[in-house]
Nucleic acid binder design. Structure first.
Lengths: 358, 358
DNA sequence: CACTTTCGTTGGATCGATTCAAATTTTGCT
DNA sequence: AGCAAAATTTGAATCGATCCAACGAAAGTG
């Protein structure tokens, strides 16, 4: 086989075709980046040379270095990459991010990794102009890594104490209080809470002391909101069972079994995510417990699935896509001001909540 | 405000900290890329300088140029970016791609664009080692652009005539024939076909001549498979209504209205995608037509949603995630051989198909 | 003590483009 | 033709790193 099509070709550079066409590399560059300023005859000659030599256009790797801007934003998470396509919350968020990126012509780079070292490396070597950090499990580490990169970044969902990190989120306390208020208004007085992570890698019942040491302020704030309202109507919050889950099916079911394995089970479940709430719906239905008549369930997030569950879920809806859009905007227009935005939430009452029996 | 934290800092370069630490840039580079070969005392000094000057580690932009490899693959489509997160087929595919990328430590860049020029630019300037091209609408243009980039790429779903483009796909003829065979075995003889695009940007009824001029070989092959089987049992395929849709709700409903707006409507629908089949299920149910008793519906793809529809959908399942994994592998191990793989499909019989009435 | 290894460090070359001031060619006008 | 203005083209500098041959110093050997 000669060197006709494939073979041991080292890539063709702009300089090569410049030489072939008998022009300077400056001119050759112009042919591709500002064709209008080069004389037609020359332009055609260079293009012909490029074609003949199999030149695929200016290599972005080279341009990049000069230009400085990558024109892409990185979306990072400590979850496996498939999280972006599986999790309903993430999907809606990504839709918002996508929309903003489409509008501005920016690309999206998904950053994640199997193990921890690779995560670090991937963040360190990501070709992006900034990061949107999905703070689920392992959020604090992610924020740390992103910060080290000295690029603009915004953290989602982790209302970190550290005021220096830009975040876009919601008023978790108020949102949670709305959910609880809805249930107390209906007359409920016996509650259980399905909580998101307070700290990484733990599931199970949560004591009040453990709440104090929460890494995830979002989780803590939602609990605060719930308890604020419950206290208001005289519920002893120290007796309200709070179960921490990994926001997956297994640990949520474990929590449910513990919650309903007692003599006087709750009449209402406050779930910190729709995902957990939806699992609860299924589990209760399998147990022949009627929602909302035996048990009311209120979720959090407002993912699309919550509207089509059986029964449709009462939930506190976040403007998820809007958060995504704003995050992109914050990074692209990064004006140096580290800002923290809070968007409004909305209680959506559907069929999963009703007054308690009797 | 002085230049304390923010300000008009131009970014710190490796050379800057080398000078500050009193070492050559070569040594400074080694501190980050091969720390073990530099004497501890020097290493600490350089690291301290980096810390002090707010250096965020070697800029990947610089490294990239030298290294040549980006370690990321681009996934391109002509649809808006959100397609990746909305469409069930795309999501399963992306899950497979993600998995393979996670395993090898490669990143994923989503490439798309609002308009056509931007698409070209985005493909030309994507920082990737290769492309996976989602050939839905506008597939041929995408393939063309990807090819011009002279990077390895594989096309999904578009079984292009052009043998020079690598593809990973399925045997569409055989898969479609299986679907049709299932229905003919049940006794059906009156059919209608919900077809994917034969050419870009057209929807509505399709004439046999139009089928010949199909740009999308996948669509054509599925129809061929359907008709092969229908002919075998004596159905006059020239009388079988074939409606081209954009694989969205609106055009599918329009097709359904045309299909059922006749005196003797079909007893079975052959849908070239689960998406259309699921729309058909809803539409039929709203029309008080019972599936499968009044009408049988068979989909194509085997997306997760098909298992939980009402009723669950009989469909031809592609190994979607596996296709994604293989595509990544093909690009990463790009050995220069343009190969075309065909993976097996499987008929999954669920509750949306039954013998026709009477 | 002279001589070979080993270890660390240096600085120039390179990756592939873009940019821009200066040089050169064309064009326009009288 | 003569000259200024406009249009093109040139080539050096730059972007931010990595690589590597060569070199100096310290350690080991006979």
């Amino acid at each position: 086989m000669a060197s006709l099509t494939a073979g041991n070709r080292r890539p063709v550079r702009l300089a090569d075709i410049a030489k072939a066409a008998g022009v300077s590399h400056g001119t050759a560059s112009n042919v591709f980046s500002r064709p209008e300023i080069v004389r037609e005859e020359v332009r055609e000659r260079v293009k012909a040379a490029a074609e003949a030599m199999g030149y695929g256009g200016p290599d972005p790797k080279g341009r990049l270095l000069r230009a400085g801007k990558v024109n892409a934003i990185g979306v990072a998470t400590a979850e496996p990459l498939s999280y972006f396509f599986d999790d309903p919350f993430a999907r809606v968020m990504m839709a918002g991010i996508s929309q903003a990126c489409d509008a501005t012509g920016a690309g999206i780079s998904l950053v994640s990794a199997g193990n921890n070292e690779q995560l670090a490396w991937n963040i360190q070597s990501a070709l992006v102009d900034g990061f949107i950090v999905f703070c689920i499990e392992g959020g604090s580490r992610l924020v740390q890594l992103a910060r080290e990169r000295k690029l603009p970044f915004v953290a989602l969902d982790l209302a970190s104490e550290d005021g220096s990190v830009a975040t876009i989120g919601i008023d978790n306390v108020a949102g949670a209080a709305m959910a609880a208020r809805h249930l107390t208004d209906l007359g409920h007085r016996r509650f259980a809470v399905l909580a998101l992570q307070f700290v990484d890698g733990r599931t199970g019942p949560v004591s009040p002391e453990q709440v104090q040491t929460a890494v995830y302020a979002g989780t803590r704030d939602r609990l605060t909101g719930y308890f604020q309202e419950l206290s208001r109507v005289g519920v002893d919050t120290s007796k309200v069972p709070v179960y921490e889950t990994a926001n997956d099916v297994a640990s949520t079911i474990a929590a449910l079994e513990a919650i309903f394995g007692v003599a006087e089970p709750p009449t209402a479940i406050l779930a910190m995510s729709d995902r957990m709430a939806l699992v609860a719906l299924e589990w209760l239905s399998a147990r022949k417990l009627n929602v909302p008549n035996d048990v009311s369930v209120v979720g959090f997030d407002g993912v699309p699935e919550s509207a089509v569950s059986e029964p449709p879920l009462t939930t506190v809806a976040q403007p998820i896509a809007e958060i995504g859009r704003l995050a992109v905007k914050a990074i692209l227009e990064n004006d140096g001001t580290t800002n923290r935005r809070q968007l409004p939430v909305e209680l959506i009452v559907r069929a999963s909540s009703a007054p308690p029996r009797g």
